[in-house]
């Protein structure tokens, strides 16, 4: 048992150790969030007074629903595409074939280079003069004109997937590599063909990992800013909508702040629901 004096000392030291992290949290996150919140409730350009007009005017615009819907469509689309890409990729990579390490590095490349540069390359690749369109025109029947991919919603989802799939791919691969090979062999001996093993055994067992990875991909895609900023064209999700309020003079900080608060609340609500669903035993 600790004596009372040493117990007090223990608490004090713990608090001291925690203080840098807590201080960072309050000064660099909580305080800015409060500033954003206060700003969103002030009349534009004023330091006093309270108003809800920034929320009301934004939410009353028909554009608001469009912007919010677009943000969700892009992030959920990116999650779905990433899952569809990650499962075959994980299955291929766990075989440890030739150049295994190279492909593992390839998988994380989009997360290591600046996203903007990736987006630039994608714009060049999928542009009307890019290789993808040249390929389509040359080899695919009935395609004679460049197809527009850049600055469209499917194009954006493609770019998001390129940038944010590694989260899901990594958790999926880790889960696949953690599976006891005997479990699949058991299903195989029991008469399940390759597809049945995948459907009844492998996929159910890696689903928790896929869902965990998809939280990260969703968060990243929901808050994505650089990609839609340069590759979004007329499609502006919430983050770009916020930035546009302060990018032009006169900067509308209060309007931007109100939109930022709406975005933060939407993300927290969505994540909370998602976590609830995750916690529910899947089996």
């Amino acid at each position: 048992m600790l004596k009372r004096g040493s117990k007090a000392r223990f608490i004090l030291i713990t608090l001291l150790l925690l203080s840098p992290g807590l201080l960072t949290f309050f000064l660099l996150f909580f305080y800015p969030m409060m500033v954003t919140l206060t700003r969103s409730l002030r009349p534009e350009g004023e330091q006093i007074g309270w108003t809800l007009e920034h929320y009301v005017t934004f939410l009353a615009e028909p554009r608001a629903r469009e912007v919010i819907l677009l943000t969700f469509v892009l992030s959920i689309g990116a999650v779905l595409c990433s899952v569809l890409l990650s499962i075959p990729l994980g299955l291929a990579l766990r075989q440890k074939l030739r150049a295994h390490r190279f492909y593992r590095l390839t998988m994380i490349t989009p997360r290591v280079v600046p996203g903007l540069i990736g987006a630039l390359g994608l714009l060049l690749l999928f542009g009307s003069r890019g290789w993808v369109n040249l390929f389509l025109i040359r080899f695919v029947p009935f395609v004679n004109e460049p197809i527009s991919i850049n600055y469209t919603i499917p194009g954006l989802i493609l770019f998001y997937t390129w940038l944010y799939f590694p989260f899901i791919a990594l958790t999926t691969l880790a889960a696949l590599e953690g599976l006891d090979p005997a479990i699949e062999e058991a299903a195989d001996v029991a008469g399940a063909n390759r597809w049945q093993v995948l459907r009844h055994v492998v996929i159910p067992l890696i689903t928790p990992a896929i869902l965990a990875g998809s939280v990260l991909t969703f968060m990243a895609a929901f808050g994505a800013f650089s990609i839609p900023l340069i590759a979004g064209g007329n499609h502006r999700p919430l983050s770009v909508e916020i930035y546009r309020q302060i990018d032009f003079t006169p900067a509308r900080w209060s309007a931007a702040s109100a939109r930022a608060m709406i975005m933060a609340v939407l993300q927290v609500i969505f994540l909370t629901i998602y976590m609830r669903v995750l916690r529910r035993p899947i089996t």
Partner: peptide, 24 residues
Amino acid sequence: LLMSILLLPRMIPPIAFALGVAQI
């Protein structure tokens, strides 16, 4: 709980608190 509070900045879109950081 403490851990998830400290991780909160990773769960909020950066642009949301970047606005506040800029003003400060």
